[in-house]
């Protein structure tokens, strides 16, 4: 098994004339929880979408476990989009059946337990749910997979603090040792305690890539503090 789960070479993505990501080179190892941090519009979502295979790079390359995004990588990657992508007319139980059908690594029991913990009725239709509840359902679906790479785009933005703690706990306890989790967010203080590594990006460029321990040692600051310093307006 390759130790590197995700690697990019000169990864560049532009939309028309606007460059969203430019020349990103990085390697992400297995068994880490990585915070992908940056201000709004810095290219976090673009990076995650490229890794999920929803966008095609303009230049350069991105590989997951050695392969460019495709059917094989999508089976290994569990992606939480920042959009609510679920069909409104479906019941939670139906969307669980959908995931179970397409992802062989989906664990139904895990999903049902998490629904119970967060007081979500599997027979409810998504239409009747609040935005926050829908986000919880999506996160439960994504975390119920035994994936090798989790790509979580703003996973805690819309949910209440109590659920936030539960979700973060789920993220730490749910993934296998050889899997990695990439979390994109600007709510750094909330997730700081679970991160192993951080990647700062700004205006499409890699600013800093380091382990959290290193930051605490060399800068003598919390990640949140460093972020505020680096991205000072």
């Amino acid at each position: 098994m390759m130790m590197t789960i995700l690697s990019t070479k000169n990864l560049t993505k532009s939309y028309g004339k606007k460059t969203a990501l430019s020349n990103i080179n990085m390697e992400i190892q297995r068994g880490r929880i990585i915070g992908l941090l940056g201000p709004n519009g810095s290219g976090k979502s673009t990076f995650i979408k490229l890794a999920a295979g929803l966008l095609v790079p303009t230049e350069g390359e991105i590989t997951i476990d050695g392969d460019v995004p495709g059917v094989d990588t999508k089976a290994k990657v569990s992606y939480l989009s920042e959009r609510t992508y679920l069909n409104d007319w479906m019941r939670v139980s139906e969307i669980i059946a959908f995931f179970e059908d397409f992802y062989t690594d989906f664990n139904r029991i895990k999903a049902e337990n998490m629904l119970k913990d967060l007081n979500i009725n599997p027979d409810d239709r998504l239409k009747t749910m609040s935005k926050g509840t829908k986000e919880k359902v999506q996160l439960i679906l994504v975390m119920s997979r035994q994936a090798q790479l989790y790509l979580l785009d703003e996973p805690i933005g819309g949910v209440d603090p109590a659920a936030r703690d539960y979700i973060l706990n789920t993220i730490i306890t749910n993934y296998k040792e050889d899997a990695s989790v990439i979390i994109s967010t600007h709510l750094i203080a909330d997730i700081e305690q679970i991160l192993d590594d951080i990647i700062f990006i700004n205006q499409g460029e890699l600013v800093l890539s380091s382990s959290v321990d290193e930051i605490r040692e060399t800068h003598n600051k919390s990640v949140d503090g460093l972020f505020r310093e680096v991205f000072k307006c």
Binding site: A52, G53, L54, V71, D72, K74, A75, V77, Y79, S81, R83, T84, Y85, L86, N87, F102, Y103
Partner: peptide
């Protein structure tokens, strides 16, 4: 649209 985020993350061709 948004639903595409799910459909294109499925491991299908």
């Amino acid at each position: 649209t948004d639903e595409g985020y799910l459909m294109f993350s499925l491991p299908v061709k």
